[in-house]
Amino acid sequence: MNKITVHCTVNHKPVAVEIDPNKRLLDMLREDLNLTSVKEGCSEGECGACTVIFNGEPVTSCCVLAGQAEGADIITLEGVSVDGKPDVVQQAFMDAGAVQCGFCTPGMILTAEALLAKNPAPTEEEVKQAMSGNLCRCTGYAKIVEAVLLAAERARGGV
């Protein structure tokens, strides 16, 4: 097996990672780049905990090989906060009580970020649809949906 070098942009910075090809993007982010906010919950694309924003779209990083990240623009939760402070979505998750055990939270926030970047004023149904690939076992989702709507409203200058 020949090692490969993956060149990509992670959290707004260019990186080059020398890695065995039999590693997933999830492994590369967690192990090689120490971005441990990316969580492994099911390893089969079902739970959404390992969601990252990949070229603007949310994808489950357990379904992507490290080599496939060549040339990609990747955002993890570490790349969302502003000057070490929570951004509008992160703050809304705190304020709405959308965080319990916290394991699904990184994937939830990233999926919400990707949604709001495309659709700054989603309806409740659109939020539910967009977040449907992220499972949460604690909250029952109501407060998560509330948080995303709150973030959207605040970002548009309301509240």
Partner: peptide, 27 residues
């Protein structure tokens, strides 16, 4: 061959697929 990866990467990860070569078509 990886077209989307949503089946194959899981099979690789679980040692259910053990190819010598993986070709990604995404590019």
């Amino acid at each position: 061959v990886i077209a989307g990866g949503t089946d194959l990467v899981l099979e690789l990860n679980e040692y259910k697929a053990t190819p010598a070569v993986v070709i990604d078509l995404k590019k």
